[in-house]
Nucleic acid binder design. Structure first.
Lengths: 361, 361
DNA sequence: AGTTCCACTGCAAACGTTTGTAGTCGCTCA
DNA sequence: TGAGCGACTACAAACGTTTGCAGTGGAACT
């Protein structure tokens, strides 16, 4: 039973009056301050122990006597004490923050990834900075540098930078790359090659012999993979594949390519992502071309969109949430041992819906 | 012309050798360390000035001699020096970070808001923590508390907490609330009342006399506003309005309410948000009810979805990006003067698309 | 020549933590 | 009885900055 009370009162400082002459080193009245947050020092004063003991109560509980610990915790609770992570970071060098850099938050591919990464990180007591580069490599670099001192690592999602740039940055801060393998760095990628192959095979099974590939952005590794794999799969089946692009990975861009797609004479199209596929369907619709009646369209990513369009979209499902979680895990593991490299490849699968159909004769 | 050179070499510490006996206090050879980041102290040593001068070079340039400043900047550049924001925060009390707490990142309402807020904040040299509460008030509170020490303020988007809770939290950290007015706190809200009125009037103009309101989540201020305003508008026109709910603001929930909507006998529905509207349309479709043939459906938010559904969705457009920017502005203004209160109300407008039509006779 | 002022720079304390080292105390064991 | 040990706690330095204060030298004014 502590022989002092906790009251509310205005000014800074925890120690106010000593009523009992006996307790010289512990205040009899404690002043909870409403405006200035309590520090470890306040807790120490009130509970009559040294700050280091309070510190250990939180960061190494097994080193402090259970009864002392209980008392400290009680006062910490009463004072509303919360450790200052910035101060802790200053001395330990670990911030318990991570950075998450994406090309475009509004692109429906990313929110599930962000959500999964954030909740996974928080479950491990990490907070997440989210930043948007607007598909700009320069912004990407600046952002990593700006965040470097505030985080224990950065998740670089679908970066548009060069490998060299990325490697250089990785000397300033641990990096995990998502959606692209970078030699010497941990990365998590989706097996889009497999997905693209499945998509092409699906279209060929439906009788299509001339297929168009609606390409994505220039810097994208995913784009190159899709192209490589689709070309191979088409050739293996003796079908033609016409590649269009590079194009920005947006809905508008997909719509704008509708005429170009028609000119290729293809009866089926594989698009770089759902967004472009949806745009393309709209564009074709405006030209009076029906999907899948006259042309089949397949997307990639299986974003929330794909179930909502009419016709619903056949697409390659990429496990974005799993990728977010995996990336966080790799970052937190590799925090110290930065030399370790690993490449996690996540499987993709084809989701057949209504936008692909048998070739019109 | 500085009489020392900059070379690459492995170990910590900037000062290595003095070749010229004359320059006792400035190193002749400088060791750029690849693994440990340069501190203000390294820059000071190399440029032969005190740390405080280096500090001022960055935080109060007008106080340092232009030529000194130039030299310091040059060496800072060469050493790759970047100020440590955590250390700066520790002493200034300002972190240059803000927190952004949303109910569900994957809800298409939020990404545009997050994107706008992040880019607006970054333009002002602030970084943004994004966190997701999964629509849980408890998580909300915990998150604000956890973030409090690391940020200069928090944007609370569509909070599910009680006003009392929010007010209590606002004593720990400056808060700006989005999508809900809280007495005594700065907030930015959308004029959904106006939007709901416009929607109801639109439906009435189309001949509908029995309208259903598909309500949203319990804690939502927006939900109450919509209900209040829709009721008023319907009554003014002598029409009936049946309110359903509360419901979770999700697509599934909208679909699940399809039968309940039919039972009300309404020929038109106003939904709490686009997500529910889209779900409802699906649900009705599954029951063989056509939209807008038999029932008209109007959403709220004008998310990216609404243009992509078939039929495209008539909906109330809320300026989410503008709300994000406004909230950031208010937070950054009110940082010091927390007593100031302000309520920014953003206009909404009705976007008429294909999901609403004249009442079937 | 002396005074005042200004522009600039150095000094040192502070911010809230962590952590290596050095006690102190009471036990156990020989 | 005294050495040794284990459990606990105090001390103090450190992390990388900012900032009030004091000091310096020189220019301008009287």
């Amino acid at each position: 039973m502590p022989d002092f009370v906790v009251v509310k009162a205005p000014p800074r400082s925890t120690v106010v009056i000593r009523t009992k002459p006996g307790s010289v080193d512990r205040p009899a009245t404690v002043c909870i301050n409403d405006t200035v947050p309590a520090t470890i020092r306040d807790v120490a004063r009130v509970s009559g122990v040294h700050v280091s003991t309070v510190s250990r109560t939180f960061s190494a509980p097994h080193l402090v006597n259970p009864s002392t610990r209980a008392r400290v915790l009680e006062f910490a609770e009463q004072l509303g004490y919360r450790p200052n992570r910035a101060a802790r970071a200053l001395i330990t060098g670990r911030t318990h923050n991570i950075g998450l850099i994406v090309a475009d938050i509004a692109n429906p591919f990313f929110p599930p990834l962000i959500k999964a990464a954030e909740s996974h990180a928080r479950a491990r007591d990490y907070h997440v900075f989210v930043a948007d580069t607007n598909e700009d490599a320069g912004v990407e670099e600046e952002l990593v540098l700006a965040l470097a001192k505030q985080v224990d690592g950065v998740l670089l999602c679908s970066p548009r930078m060069s490998n060299t740039q990325i490697e250089r940055l990785s000397r300033d801060v641990p990096l995990v790359v998502v959606n692209r393998p970078v030699p010497g760095l941990p990365a998590v990628v989706m097996d889009v090659a497999q997905g693209a192959r499945l998509a092409i095979e699906h279209l060929i099974t439906l009788g299509h012999r001339e297929i168009a590939l609606l390409g994505g952005p220039r810097g994208s590794w995913t784009n190159r993979e899709i192209r490589r794999s689709a070309t191979l799969a088409a050739r293996a089946a003796g079908s033609g594949l016409t590649v269009l692009g590079p194009n920005p990975p947006t809905e508008d861009s997909g719509a704008a390519q509708a005429e170009a797609v028609l000119r290729t004479g293809a009866t089926a199209v594989l698009a770089y992502n759902d967004l472009m596929a949806v745009g393309l369907i709209d564009g074709l619709d405006r030209l009076g071309v029906s999907v899948p009646g006259q042309i089949s369209v397949v997307g990639i990513d299986d974003t929330a969109l794909s179930r909502r369009t009419r016709p619903t979209l056949t697409t390659v499902a990429t496990p974005t949430a799993a990728a977010g979680r995996a990336a966080v895990d790799m970052l937190l593991q590799h925090g110290d041992d930065r030399r370790t490299t690993a490449l996690v490849t996540l499987q993709t699968e084809l989701v057949i819906r209504d936008s692909s159909g048998v070739r019109a004769s």
